[in-house]
Design a protein around this nucleic acid. Sequence first.
DNA 1: CGCTTCTTTGATTCAACTCAATGGATGTGG
DNA 2: CCACATCCATTGAGTTGAATCAAAGAAGCG
Lengths: 252, 252
Amino acid sequence: MNTHEPIIDFSKIKATCTTCNLHELCLPRGLSVEDLNKLDYVIKGSRPIQKNKHIFRSNDSFHSFFAVRSGSVKAYTLNESGEEQIIGFYFPGEILGFDAIEEHKHTCSAVALETTTVCSIPYTKLNEISAQVPELQDQILRLISREITKENKLLLTINKRSAEERIATFLVSLSSRFQKLGYSAKEFNLPMSRQDIGNYLGLTIETVSRLFTKFQKNGLIKIDKKSISIQDLSTLRTICEGFSDKSNNSVA
Amino acid sequence: MNTHEPIIDFSKIKATCTTCNLHELCLPRGLSVEDLNKLDYVIKGSRPIQKNKHIFRSNDSFHSFFAVRSGSVKAYTLNESGEEQIIGFYFPGEILGFDAIEEHKHTCSAVALETTTVCSIPYTKLNEISAQVPELQDQILRLISREITKENKLLLTINKRSAEERIATFLVSLSSRFQKLGYSAKEFNLPMSRQDIGNYLGLTIETVSRLFTKFQKNGLIKIDKKSISIQDLSTLRTICEGFSDKSNNSVA
DNA sequence: CGCTTCTTTGATTCAACTCAATGGATGTGG
DNA sequence: CCACATCCATTGAGTTGAATCAAAGAAGCG
């Protein structure tokens, strides 16, 4: 690439970038034009990645974060027995690669669930920039912290929940993520297999299937293959919050 | 050499600080004396915190990270129904407060499980310092990333595991953390209640109790009240990895 | 010393798993 | 374009591991 030419034309990509979880960096407020120009050179676009192709693999050396621009990605590790452990799904605007900061190499693999495009955000460049633009430093830390802890939240809560609550939580999470992207919160595609959903949520494929069927029978969703339509979001939300109180908690 | 009194005398606290997960910051290698002196003023010690007293509460504004120096801490949130959700236990050398970076206020509460002392590491000071000492910036990011993702790992794996695997994982995790601290990896105290363990692992108190009893019967541990002695760490490790040996049921 | 809280143990229930079979979709080569 | 193979999803039957319900013992506390 030509490093002297701005890679991103903000006016063209604004619609995409304003929904990006790094847009505070790409389109920061309160920064001088000069600062913005510095940042301008940090972000690189990339060619499309075909379905089932990897964006990076575990142990790859770490150069860049990746922001999904279109399509979707699943991240996974392999456990001791070589089984896949899915650790997250990523949609446009969401960022991959935070796992790699510590060791400067990736600790998970990322694979496209469909044809996908990503922005890459070189880590060293980001460091350089933030040294030159101190306002960015706290912002970067906050962003990274947010992205990492966000994932934490879901995992934390899912741990104690019934299969029904897990599936409902998963669907509601997808719904609000798509809404944030400006897509429909009610009608969207599940780009991952039932297997993947089950793996991610700690359920078997059969349980996932049965619950989709049950939710459909109860009028909460309509589901056909990979396309889903949320019919009753508020009830789904109620399910998420655990109406069936099987808790072991007492201290308040 | 300074008109201001250094808060920390490195020669006195070295034993504590070298086991601290922030020691790369407090005792950094490859930094000039001048840099070290800057850092010198960042870290403050603190008075002891009594059992059941809070270090911070959810929604408190965020000023500092806290490194546990002695004792132990549990962090928790309250869910919609006001139930406690334990999100972690912290022992000497471990750091609290990363949840607060994004919003600059705490999103969980931290309470001492026993009489506890902490160091506080002011966030703004850390930011100032890292602006003055660029070498620290990447290091801080790596540290924070490590601390946050570490927790992630456990939660991620525990999600799909049997009660037996969860308890084994918990014990092995504590064991290696204590070992890292220079304490015994085999004999230590569980400062939290069975309730707390169950809450953290997503199990009921009865299941926790039964499994402790079972592990004891099978010669894996000896447990008396809160004091535990690991008898067979390697088998415990095997259980963690999910190759659960069903034949251990017959051991009387 | 009595009261409360925490822990252990037993009996029973139920949610999610395993096993099993079928149906649908996708892809390939003849 | 069909025949066949493969993969993915659904559905049913039966099993099991952890929760629930229940009760009693042990420890901490005023």
